[in-house]
Design a protein around this nucleic acid. Structure first.
Lengths: 152, 152
DNA sequence: TGTAATTAGTGGCATGTGCAACTATTTTTG
DNA sequence: CAAAAATAGTTGCACATGCCACTAATTACA
């Protein structure tokens, strides 16, 4: 209809929104929302992280992290244990219930990736990841540099 | 910290969220939120579209579209005029006020694109767009096919 | 032609997300 | 050591977004 050249930003938006819809749909039955799976997946990789570590690794606001973990805890997927050596922070651990659905939760992302990769060669998939990584790195770097922390 | 291989989905999420933050920050002064710029940009390309057309072109829920346009109208950037030939629908037109900031609004996306493209060759940028387009097309197609409309 | 189905748009609800102000610890420093 | 600065986490707010139920208008069709 409109002859506009689609831009990177627009495709990113579409991919993000559709991805969220897909993930939400697939995990709904477990009471896991589309905002929580990313934390589960991170914890499957490395259990016992603090919220701070999760936030900075995933580049997600600490408030958002706190809320997502609160929900996961309420659903019985994680438990938070105060660190003895620093009582401000927690260690977040997956429960048995969370480990039990690990393959399923990870499978959702895998399946989505397959849907996206349809018709792409192995090489193209590799390239796509590489280019997204570069752009993501640029975005993250820009964000940090323009952080509003008072200059040292 | 964690050795996890970053996935396409994760980078897409980061790029989307950081992009929204950037856009929101840049347009704040004009009273335009991060959810509205996409409609302005579409209308700069083709003025007078209906909400339905905007929704289906941008692949954005019609409820979301309605709310975004309502805000743009409240801020004086668009006006909606009932179509004579179909009184259910509007034509959405940009106002003088919107045209006046066209370059600035479009510049925000251009600048963000430049930030993301830092260190990428022309060829890589072309490739990135091409691959995102393919994946976005896959996502959109999948979404349509799994639409919950009663089967004909 | 008149009833049923479809379509454009609205409004309410739930959720995710970032920001900013706040509390409670811990670390730094004079 | 005591006061100040930094840090981990929480909470409230604003906004974006999708879904669903609804209304009003249009189109299909029996």
């Amino acid at each position: 209809m409109i002859d506009q050249r689609h831009t990177i930003t627009r495709w990113v938006s579409l991919l993000y929104r559709y991805g969220q819809m897909y993930i939400g749909e697939r995990l709904k039955a477990h009471g896991i929302g589309k905002g929580q799976h990313i934390f589960l997946n991170a914890l499957y990789k490395e259990d016992g992280l603090s919220q701070e570590e999760l936030s900075s690794y995933l580049k997600i606001d600490k408030g958002t992290t706190a809320k997502a973990l609160k929900k996961l805890e309420a659903q019985g997927y994680v438990l938070r244990q105060v660190r003895e050596e620093d009582k401000r922070s927690y260690r977040v651990f997956l429960t048995e219930k969370a480990w039990r659905i690990k393959d399923e939760v990870r499978g959702v992302l895998t399946d989505w990736r397959h849907i996206l990769s349809d018709g792409l060669t192995e090489e193209e998939q590799r390239l796509a990841l590489e280019l997204l990584e570069k752009m993501g790195g640029n975005a993250a770097r820009f964000n940090e540099e323009n952080d509003k922390t008072p200059k040292a």
